[in-house]
Design a protein around this nucleic acid. Structure first.
Lengths: 210, 210, 210, 210
DNA sequence: AATGAATGAGTATTCATTCAT
DNA sequence: TATGAATGAATACTCATTCAT
């Protein structure tokens, strides 16, 4: 199976090409995570990589393209990581797995997640619109909503209006996403956080006793 | 012996001054909310206000000061708005009021809230540290944690570990804050959102039947 | 800050870099000498060099750094030029050589000297203190005072109080420094000036007959 | 920072006008002396005077005019102060008196002198030419040259070429002028300086024994 | 494949001056 | 007389991008 690159004019990637792109992306991630999107100039990134600014432009046709690759790479990694969720057999365990798996992924990719959050909430088009962040009906909510509806139909979750399912999905997603920022604090206990989160949303979703 | 001050009538001059500052702040808020913190240059703000850049510098000694006023103004407005929460007499109703009141405030100050979020998450000092955003133990969580602990001690909420109370507070706060972004979508139904949110966290906090 | 180097391993002498820096320094010197420190903006300097403002910023990280290089370059040139003074074998001839050599150097570096004078007397730190000019006990007076004390101890100079030696040194230095300004006038005869100066200070320092 | 306010009262308008102009000039002198010509903005001067910028523009048609008044006022004061020099009856005593009187004047008008020096060496026309400082044949040298020629013709001074007389005059004037800067140092002993200076130039001018 | 050099638009801020009140 | 308000040009500096080598 072949993966196509966003066209940079290079149909093939040599080893050096790949290494350089990886190096630049890594340094960009570190810079964005540490200093924020706005402060992550190409110059800063290049300096951290110990290369000249021109190299960055050589390997990525624009800053925007570099950012796009950083975002995409995280989504690709994430998708692979998340596959285990689908193995769960009940809505409640799947929801718990969703929370645990996502937080585990975030814990394992602190900087990359932090950088992508920065990009998603700050990268804009020339006319000022957010480039990545989308309104409430974001595709990222789809799997979550599916779990919730499954639980509802299957009876182990309480009754949700369509909008109620979406709000629940958004709230869960928000709680997960914001965990990314919290990880900057080295004292932050991600495992305890995961446990509390799982409990919270288990209670919030389960069918109530009569 | 008395010394007389040359006191000229202040009401008029301070009116113009106040009006301009208000106008500039409003235009800054609109610009930040629509285009993001990084794109909200003094030039952009001035252009929106139909004035020259110098006017902004005349009324605000620095961009930082302008931002500070925008942030402070929202906190002042918010504090007044939130007073009604304290009137509630049970933990559950107070938590519900906290959510409702906060979301109502956000709904009534969409742009201002959006702008302050932008500032809080993007304004940085020269050395790259976030100027406003503070770690997880932010003061903003204090009232929420107090409600949760009250409910726990009083028995109507379930048992929380200390950390559990904090996680709950953070999750509620996140859900409220992110509502700000959602309001950009004109189709977004804030009242329904409020209702779902209140239910969600009521279930998540209430004491569980044996 | 860590850098992730992929070793490039070659360090090339940049002829262009040196040439540009030299060109910019030269144009800066001309601009400062002709129009004064305050009027010597980066824009003016760039315009004279026929380059864009950005080029100046590219080669010198700040205006202050450019000024520092201009000052330092003159001191380096000067130190080399002045070595001949030390070859003299009597206080009087050494004092004469000091005056002649300094004036010769000034005559040979009119603009550079004028520019450095401008910088020294005008460049200030943010809090308003002069950046280069130091109080009366400046290091520049040390060699002159040494000559005078030598002459006094050796007997060919008249008796000086400690302060008298300093005043003499300051006066000589002033006379030399101000020559820089006089050179702006093309009619100014530096050789005649040198002769008169040497005579003046020879008479002012020599031991008086009983 | 102290403000020199004038009391408002029901006095003549010309009194107020004079008082304001004097106040502004005084504050301008302090500002220039302390912070340098380039840092002495109208805003700074007005702030020190405790008035608005507009007042300065109201009383002085331009910054240039304000500077001109400051320079002129010093010359007027100086001319009056210097009258005693003319009472001397020998060239040597007159030269000594010139030095003593000038240094005494400088000592008595530290800030004003320092400010005027700043103005003279920094104020420029739009095309970059110095507005006040003139070439070597400056009018200020005339009286000094007259003393020297008198001494020469009368026989108590050594023989001077025409240019020699000018150089001597310039050197004396330089030594006097630079004393202005030295006064910033509170440890500077102006009386001892005066004594040394008088001796120095007495020796440099007197007729030499055969 | 990489780079040093250059550009030009864009940043916040300062300032002398003007003017209606 | 005095002032607050406004202006517009000027300041140093940053940055993504281009390009010849």
């Amino acid at each position: 199976m072949e993966t196509k690159n966003i066209s940079t004019g290079h149909s093939k990637e040599s080893f050096i090409e790949k290494a350089r792109r990886a190096q630049i992306m890594e340094c960009a991630i570190e810079t964005i995570a540490e200093r924020g999107f706005a402060q992550a100039s190409i110059g800063q990134i290049a300096k951290r990589a110990g290369i000249s600014k021109g190299v960055v432009s050589y390997h990525f046709s624009s800053k925007e393209e570099l950012m796009h690759h950083i975002v995409t790479a995280l989504y690709v990694d994430g998708a692979a990581f998340m596959s285990r969720i689908a193995e769960e057999t009940t809505p409640a365990s799947m929801l718990r797995s969703y929370i645990e798996t996502n937080l585990a992924f975030i814990g394992a990719h602190k900087q990359h997640v932090a950088a992508v959050m920065e990009i998603v909430w700050n990268a804009r088009t020339e006319d000022g619109k957010l480039l990545y962040a989308k309104p409430a009906n974001d595709a990222i909510l789809v799997p979550l909503e599916a779990i919730i509806r499954w639980g509802q139909e299957e009876g182990s979750f309480r009754a949700f209006s369509e909008f109620g399912a979406r709000v629940m999905a958004m709230t869960i997603r928000n709680a997960i996403d914001r965990a990314g920022s919290l990880l900057a604090d080295p004292a932050f206990d991600i495992e305890a956080y995961t446990l509390e989160m799982a409990t919270l949303f288990d209670l919030a979703t389960r069918r109530q006793p009569d």
